[in-house]
Write a protein that binds this DNA or RNA. Structure first.
Lengths: 143, 143
DNA sequence: AATAAAACCAAGTAGTTTACTTGGTTTTAA
DNA sequence: TTAAAACCAAGTAAACTACTTGGTTTTATT
């Protein structure tokens, strides 16, 4: 049940963007440096986030990335799902897909997988980038 | 965030054991046949479950496996963790391990990973094999 | 107009992990 | 004595991960 680097780096990058956004686009180079990530690899992740409508990009010199919505309107769930796909622990409970397993209707383990999926979705969809900023502020207050 | 076949097959095998236990040990061959799984592969998983104290084995002819506790005293969480390790989405929040990341103390994303981990643990530890048997009974009642 | 900074894009790739299989040995009821 | 079963260790093909490489296109700045 590990998250891959896509989800992990994606959340870090989006948090970095949220923390350092000032109306100006933020170049990937800065995000990569601050978060200690490979710029070329991050580029691929940003493509996914852009396709999902979570960031906007500005090309050319002085370009970069900006959040497409305010930090309190972007959830961790949206970020992770756009990079990793469904949070379903097993394919047969992927949202929006019809299970190809003919036992699906009366499958007992499937009930379990669905509960796990729903629980994960519930947490990740309840955490916004703003929540992370608030956590950051309370950790660093007074410094 | 996919579960590997270890966790999936492990839960299926344990459910099968719970459903078909009558005091007599159940040979792996039967479980594998009923669940449509490879017997040789299941063997490896049973070794893990035995080490975790979730099943007992009886060697020799007429041998097999038995649940080590009653179905209402075995949770899905115990099964999955014994086969897959921690449910932590990221290594730095694996229970009982000290994170080697020197930023761990003031890491904001870590707070997120911990929430996901706790939420997953909470669901899987709340579901017992007895719950699955009950689900099974209500699906098949009247047949 | 030239330069450089940046996003965008496609393909390659080493290493790891997964999901098994194979080929045994040991134990024990019948 | 036989056969059924658990137990054990090692091998392996395929898939996946986490990148890198080598470009192109766009655009603000000089």
């Amino acid at each position: 049940m590990r998250l891959s680097t896509k989800g992990r780096y994606g959340v870090k990058a989006m948090f970095d963007l949220a923390l350092h956004s000032s109306g100006e686009p933020v170049p990937l180079k800065l995000i990569a440096e601050r978060q200690g990530l490979s710029e070329a690899y991050l580029e691929q992740l940003m493509a996914g986030l852009r396709r999902a409508g979570l960031v906007n990009s500005v090309r050319g010199a002085q370009g970069g990335y900006m959040l497409a919505h305010s930090p309190d309107n972007i959830t961790i769930g949206e970020i992770i799902r756009s990079l990793e796909g469904s949070m379903a622990p097993v394919d047969c409970v992927t949202e929006g897909e019809v299970s190809e397993c003919e036992k699906a209707e009366y499958c007992v383990t499937r009930i379990v997988w669905r509960k796990i999926r729903d629980s994960i979705n519930q947490v990740v969809d309840s955490i916004t980038l703003q929540d992370m900023i608030n956590d950051y502020s309370s950790i660093h207050k007074g410094q």
